[in-house]
Design a protein around this nucleic acid. Structure first.
Lengths: 243, 243
DNA sequence: CAGTGGTCTAGACCACATC
DNA sequence: ATGTGGTCTAGACCACTGG
């Protein structure tokens, strides 16, 4: 019956693209169930096996979560403990699991620097929101993050609003601004603490800090966050798995 | 016809385990083709689709590489430019692609320290091989690696033999000792350079260095290398992708 | 040409969740 | 009982490789 499309791409990849477009368009909200495989097969005029392969690929990218017997759901940052740690790579040296608290120091509007514009695919001078926060483990300041966001996407973001939100930064972005952080590219270096960072992180000026530059992407690999973190790694470290 | 096994595991996972066991046992050497899907299906008494799913999963773990029209091949560190950069995360800040040279400073036998034993799942005092080398980009020393290997697995490893090998460290381990590095866990910190490291990396004592601790695993997640790297990140950085 | 992996289908049955 | 995803099969056809 199917195979009406004379396209060069496999059917299941075409289906994958269509479903991802619907996800990007917000056809189904975060945490909601997407239509069953049978329904999607009917909608696109392909077999259920083809839909299955498409959704398998989407699930492999963590855009969607399968739950046997229940359905397939749009992934979200507001639940799923497992997902939380996907973007948080700082751990205690002693191995104890601990989820840090986020203390917001400042939120203000500004204009994109040349560097910020480059990372966020904006023009220099475009409106941005600058957010500074500290991650604390057991009340000990460990990471100082300077976060730059495109002003156009985060219009009403204020310190009060961010303080009021219970959950992760990315949960806030998703729940209140409809911006879904899907993947990120990071660059790490070791740098010496300057006066301001040293004061906030309670280390000495010149002490080594882990410098983490992150650009976070949403659908279609569009950059929507640029973040520079400085991490005091005396009792903490950054974890990574090479597969 | 199949379904003879009253097991709790899906058939394709059983097949996956069997094929992985054959890989671990070296039934097919690095770079060699494994049997075709049809042959494996026949061998295990399952359908080709089930074998396909099993091999898909193995390919997703980079143990094996599919090549349409040719076959499925045991992955190797000695070819595939793409694979080389999987374990090498250091890049130039200016974005230029460059593959570094490895200069071996020293290879000697020793006894496992408590720390080495813990990382390599040995007993303290067990024989190990200690290898120290420098990675150089354009003749500039950038990374100082102290590598600890289980003596039992790398019996004849000497400086002369390592110097003679053309290719990556993991290519050497695979080609000459039959030890395949499959994945790794890393922990990163920022530290201050001590006298010895500073001299080799040509930085000042106290300068910040990126500290990279890596345990590399082979089949069955068995640890077979512990490596501590110190990286001067003035003109270089460590890259990571969060998916 | 034959052999390989890659796609697609249709249908059966299983495992799990919910009502 | 029904609906969901999960497994498995059998067979057809496509796309690529190499003799």
């Amino acid at each position: 019956m199917p195979n009406a499309a004379p396209s060069f791409q496999p059917l299941y990849l075409q289906v994958k693209d269509l479903v991802e477009k619907s996800l990007a368009a917000g056809e189904w909200g975060p945490g909601a169930a997407i239509p069953s495989e049978a329904l999607l097969a009917q909608r696109f005029g392909v077999s259920q096996g083809t839909v299955r392969k498409a959704i398998d690929a989407i699930a492999a990218e963590n855009l969607v979560v399968r739950r046997q017997g229940k359905g397939t759901f749009v992934a979200t940052h507001t639940e799923e403990k497992s997902s939380l740690f996907r973007f948080l790579r700082i751990r205690r040296n002693d191995g104890r699991d601990e989820y840090p608290a986020s203390r917001i120091l400042d939120v203000r509007r500004g204009k994109a620097s040349v560097e910020a514009a480059r990372h966020l695919d904006l023009d220099p001078g475009d409106p941005v929101i600058l957010l500074r926060r500290v991650l604390e483990f057991s009340a000990e300041p460990v990471v100082l993050d300077d976060i730059t966001l495109p002003g156009a996407l985060f219009k009403g973001l204020t310190k009060a609003r961010a303080d009021a939100y219970r959950g992760s930064m990315y949960g806030l972005f998703e729940a209140q601004f409809g911006v879904r952080m899907l993947k990120a590219k990071e660059r790490l270096r070791a740098v010496a603490a300057d006066a301001a960072s040293a004061r906030i992180l309670k280390v000495r000026i010149g002490d080594p800090l882990l410098w983490v530059d992150r650009v976070t992407l949403t659908y279609a690999d569009r950059p929507v966050e640029w973040r520079r973190g400085l991490c005091a790694t005396r009792r903490f470290h950054y974890v990574n798995e090479l597969g």
